[in-house]
Structures are given as structure tokens and as C-alpha cells.
């Protein structure tokens, strides 16, 4: 496979800003910088983990790669084509190759649609399928996500959270996409159901060869299922690359803190947690230098003024911290 063909989704210098309400009529417009200078490559067929706290721009980045948000600067390439430059018709064609599943299946599924209507909706919008073809495809998809034909005419409220998420997965996969964004797919579910849904996602990936962008704040899950990953803080990528390398040798202080915050269930381990002080700063006026400097246990005076660039410390392992590379 050539290098170009290996990369399915690529962002270069991606910035997404949202305008916020001005203080006074003629004051300078202010922007909330949700994602700043994000350059990430997602390889075909891999599971790419995106980790960070709420409000760090994970979902903004994912939406930008799906063309749901227009970037303020930078580009998003899907299969080599800039998705924001494409004519509408061609973009619609490309859209069916990308899908998304959401965090809370209870609110992402229309409560007035039956399971059949929900899962067949993408087929109806795409057009060109007869009713019997639709039904056949929906039943086959339902069976592969672990539900049965008997569930076809029931409503989402009849199902438990885990089953609702299975319906959401079936709906996302019915058009056989190549790229699927999983936006915290299990954080609204019970821990016992996490394993079921994550195993299902891995099975589907093996069967259909889908590329996942997996958003999560649970590093233990990311470690178990992701091939490559990026860690974001306040709109910027702080560490990025091969997940095995990052976990074997975490370099950025924020990554270290996140890894230590994962609660271990090993009673013998007496690991010391690095508890970060304070909360995430506001993305409206982020610090000029390193964005993590306010909470960083290793911050020095010049961290506040000088910006850190992502630097490659070993093949496929990038860090944005001047003191650890």
C-alpha cells in the first residue's frame, strides 16, 4: 500500500473557532478556540483514540473531520480530497462513507421511530432500495449487532441502554461506512455493558474493515483497543502517535497525570496518583504559551510565554513539551 493510500483521514493545521457574545457593541469580537492547529493522520483500518477532558475539543475535531463543522483555518482531507472544497453533490456521495455514533443512545435515537424505521432511515435517504430489500438488510444488520428480527417493530424506549447503543451502531453501519466516529460510545452505560459494546465494535471492525476514531476519557479502554492515539488539552494536541509507544513511555506531564488518574482495581498496587490542581482554563482566552502551564506540576516561568510545538521524539511519537523531549 502506498503511503498516500494508507491515510484515510488527515487534518493539517485545523483550527475551529466559535464566536462568543461581545461585551459591548464595538468591542473586538472574541472567539472560543475549540481546536487549534490540530494535525492528525488516521490510517486506514486502525482504531485511533482521541483522549482528553470535557471541553478540550475532541468532539469539535471529530465533527470537523465529518464536515459537520467548517474549520476556521486548515484543511481536512478524506481519502486525499479536501472535504470543504468538494461540490455539494460529491460531498453527499462522500458522506455515506463516514458515520458517527453518539454518547447517549437514549437521546440520539428518535423515540417515535421503530427500530426498523431508525435503522432503515439512512437507506431511505440514500434511495434506491425497495422495502423488501431494506427489511432484509435491516434484519441482517440487527442480527450482527446481537438483536433479533422480533425487535424490528419495537420502540427505543423498550430497550436497555446497551441495546439502544446496539441499535445506534446498526444504524451507523447499515451503509457500510469506511470511517466511523465513536464519540464516547460507552460512557453513558454501565461498566458491565461497556465490555459488551466495545467487543461488538471490535468484531464489526474485523468484519467490515472500518476505521474508527474513538473518543474517550478512559485511558484504560483506549489502551486496550486503540492502535494509535492523540491526547488533547484545551484545543491542542499535547501527545500523539503509536499508542503502545505512548503508554510505554508517556512524556507530557498531562499524559502522565491522565494515566495515573485511571483508577486501578489491583489491590496490591499502591500507585501514587498525580492529582492535578484546579480546572481546565477557559478556551476563550487560553494561555499564550503552553496551554497546560497553569496546572502543570513541572511548569517553569517561560512556559507561560513560549509556545511548544509537537516534536517527534521517536518514530511515530510526538510530544508538545519543551522539557520532556
Amino acid at each position: 500500500m502506498s503511503h498516500k493510500n494508507k491515510i484515510l483521514v488527515e487534518s493539517s493545521g485545523l483550527c475551529v473557532n466559535f464566536p462568543v457574545k461581545k461585551d459591548a457593541l464595538f468591542s473586538k469580537p472574541k472567539y472560543l478556540q475549540a481546536a487549534t492547529d490540530v494535525s492528525i493522520q488516521i490510517h486506514r483500518g486502525e482504531t485511533f483514540g482521541l483522549v482528553g477532558e470535557s471541553g478540550c475539543g475532541k468532539s469539535t475535531f471529530a465533527n470537523a473531520t465529518l464536515g459537520l463543522l467548517k474549520p476556521s483555518a486548515g484543511k481536512v482531507l478524506f481519502d486525499g480530497q479536501d472535504i470543504n472544497e468538494l461540490p455539494t453533490q460529491q460531498f453527499r456521495e462522500m458522506r455515506k462513507r463516514m458515520q458517527k455514533i453518539f454518547q447517549d443512545p437514549g437521546s440520539s435515537l428518535n423515540p417515535r421511530f421503530t427500530v426498523f424505521e431508525l435503522i432503515a432511515e439512512p437507506l431511505v435517504i440514500r434511495g434506491g432500495y425497495t422495502l423488501s430489500q431494506q427489511k432484509e438488510m435491516v434484519v441482517r444488520m440487527l442480527e450482527s449487532v446481537g438483536l433479533s428480527e422480533a425487535d424490528l417493530y419495537r420502540y427505543p424506549s423498550d430497550f436497555s441502554g446497551g441495546q439502544q447503543q446496539r441499535i445506534a451502531i446498526a444504524r451507523a453501519l447499515i451503509l457500510r461506512p469506511e470511517y466511523l466516529v465513536c464519540d464516547e460510545p460507552v460512557s453513558a452505560l454501565d461498566v458491565s455493558v461497556h465490555a459488551q459494546i466495545l467487543n461488538l465494535l471490535m468484531d464489526m471492525q474485523k468484519k467490515m474493515g472500518i476505521t474508527y476514531l474513538f473518543i474517550s476519557h478512559n485511558l484504560a479502554v483506549v489502551k486496550k483497543i486503540c492502535d494509535r492515539m492523540a491526547i488533547m488539552y484545551l484545543g491542542k494536541v499535547v501527545e500523539y502517535g503509536d499508542s503502545e509507544k505512548i503508554f510505554a513511555n508517556p512524556l507530557h506531564p498531562y499524559t502522565k497525570a491522565l494515566i495515573s488518574a485511571v483508577l486501578s482495581i489491583d489491590v496490591n498496587s499502591d500507585q501514587k496518583r498525580i492529582t492535578l490542581k484546579g480546572d481546565v482554563s477557559s478556551p476563550i482566552n487560553p494561555p499564550v504559551g503552553c496551554r497546560f502551564c497553569k496546572r502543570c506540576p513541572a511548569a517553569r516561568a517561560d512556559c507561560e510565554t513560549e509556545e511548544c510545538k509537537l516534536t517527534e521524539v521517536e518514530p511515530d511519537h510526538f510530544v508538545a513539551c519543551r522539557f520532556c523531549c
Binding site: 458491565s192 459488551q196 489502551k223 503502545e244 503508554f247 486501578s264
Partner: peptide
């Protein structure tokens, strides 16, 4: 056993989770 097994652990290798089938 199933509940403890289904918790993702940092020590784990990449791969599948132990799961309890079905629901309550």
C-alpha cells in the same frame, strides 16, 4: 468475577474484554 473482569485495566494487553452476556 464477570464485573471485575469487565473493568478495563491499565495492565491489560490489547484485545477483547471479558464480558457478561445479556442484561439484568
Amino acid at each position: 468475577k464477570g464485573l471485575i473482569g469487565s473493568v478495563a485495566k491499565m495492565e491489560d494487553k490489547k484485545g477483547k474484554f471479558i464480558q457478561i452476556p445479556d442484561s439484568l
